[in-house]
C-alpha cells in the first residue's frame, strides 16, 4: 500500500462527559450566592409590597430619623417614613424597570446584529459603523434627552436607555454571530437549500443564545444603576413614590446630619444586586465562550 500523505488533523477537542449535565460548567459557591441574592430581591420586588402593610409614603414627623422599633425594623427617614417599607416598595421600580431596558435592547440589538451578520456586505458595514458611532453617546445622556422632551418618568427614560444600550448588545451578538456564520456547518445548510431565515433562527440564534443571555444579564446591572441615577437626579421615578435612587437622594440631608440610614440602606441594595448580577454575567460569559 502506498503511503498516504498525512495532513495535520484538527486537534481532538477535550472529551467531556456526554451526559446531558456533563456539558455544564462546574457551578461555584459564588454563583449560588449571587443567584440567591438576585432571586431574593426579585421575590421582594414582586411580592414584598403585598406582604408589607406599612404605607411607605405615610409621613410622621414625630418619628423623624427615629431608630428601629417593633414593626419598623429599619427605623425612619427624615420625614418619618418607614425605611423598610420604602425599601420593599422601592424594589419594584428599581428591580423591574431595568427588565424593560434589557428586553427592548436585546430584541432590537439582537435583530440588527443577526440580520447584519447574515446579510453581510454593505448592510453589515453600515450597521457596524452606526454601532461604533452610537457608542459615543452614553445611554444615560440619551435618557436625559428623552426626559427633557417627554417629561420625567420611568417609561420614557427606560425606552431611551434601551436605545442607548442597543449598540452595546448588538456589537456583542454581531461578533458572535459572524463567528458562527463562518463555520462550515452553516455553509452545509446553505448548500442543502435551507433559507437564510431558517439558518439564522434555527441554527445561529440557538448557538449564540448563551452569549445573548450573558450580555443581557450584564446590561441589566448597568441599566439598574442608570435608572437609579436618573431617579437620583430627579428625572426618573418621582417622589413621593419609592425607588432606591430616590431614597439615596432623599437621604442626603440626613447624611449631613449624621443619619445616613436612608441613603445607606438603598445604596446597599443597589450594590448587592448589581454586584450579584455582574458576577453572574461574568460566569455566564465564561460559560458561553467556553462552550464555543
Amino acid at each position: 500500500m502506498s503511503i498516504l500523505a498525512v495532513q495535520s488533523a484538527s486537534p481532538e477537542p477535550v472529551e467531556m462527559p456526554t451526559s446531558s449535565a456533563g456539558r455544564r460548567h462546574r457551578v461555584g459557591v459564588g454563583t449560588w450566592i449571587a443567584l440567591g441574592i438576585l432571586v431574593f430581591f426579585m421575590l421582594v420586588a414582586l411580592f414584598g409590597p403585598l406582604l408589607v402593610s406599612t404605607d411607605p409614603s405615610s409621613i410622621s414627623l414625630m418619628d423623624s430619623f427615629g431608630p428601629p422599633q417593633p414593626g419598623h425594623p429599619l427605623g425612619f427617614d427624615g420625614e418619618g417614613r418607614d425605611l423598610f417599607a420604602r425599601l420593599v416598595y422601592g424594589a419594584r421600580s428599581s428591580m423591574l424597570g431595568p427588565i424593560l431596558v434589557v428586553l427592548i435592547s436585546t430584541l432590537l440589538g439582537g435583530s440588527i446584529a443577526l440580520s447584519a451578520a447574515w446579510i453581510g456586505g454593505a448592510y453589515d458595514a453600515v450597521v457596524a459603523r452606526v454601532i461604533d458611532a452610537l457608542f459615543a453617546f452614553p445611554g444615560l445622556l440619551l435618557a436625559i434627552l428623552a426626559v427633557s422632551l417627554v417629561g420625567p418618568g420611568l417609561l420614557a427614560a427606560s425606552i431611551a436607555l434601551s436605545i442607548g444600550y442597543t449598540p452595546y448588545v448588538a456589537r456583542i451578538i454581531r461578533s458572535a454571530a459572524l463567528q458562527e456564520r463562518s463555520l462550515p456547518y452553516v455553509s452545509a445548510l446553505t448548500v442543502q437549500g435551507l433559507g437564510g431565515t431558517s439558518v439564522v433562527l434555527r441554527h445561529i440564534l440557538p448557538n449564540v443564545s448563551g452569549i445573548i443571555v450573558a450580555a443581557a444579564t450584564l446590561s441589566y446591572g448597568y441599566a439598574l444603576i442608570d435608572l437609579a441615577a436618573l431617579s437620583f437626579i430627579g428625572l426618573g421615578v418621582q417622589p413621593p413614590a419609592s425607588d432606591w435612587g430616590v431614597m439615596v437622594a432623599n437621604g442626603i440631608p440626613g447624611l449631613l446630619q449624621g443619619y445616613p440610614q436612608a441613603s445607606l440602606y438603598a445604596s446597599a441594595c443597589i450594590v448587592l444586586v448589581v454586584g450579584a448580577v455582574n458576577f453572574l454575567g461574568d460566569r455566564l460569559t465564561e460559560a458561553a465562550e467556553g462552550g464555543r
Binding site: 484538527s10 477537542p13 463555520l183 462550515p184 456547518y185 455553509s187 452545509a188 445548510l189 448548500v191 442543502q192 441554527h203 448557538n207
Partner: peptide, 12 residues
Amino acid sequence: QIVFQDPYTSLD
C-alpha cells in the same frame, strides 16, 4: 451536495 474537510465544525 458537499462534504467538507473538518468534521468538527461541519455539524451544528
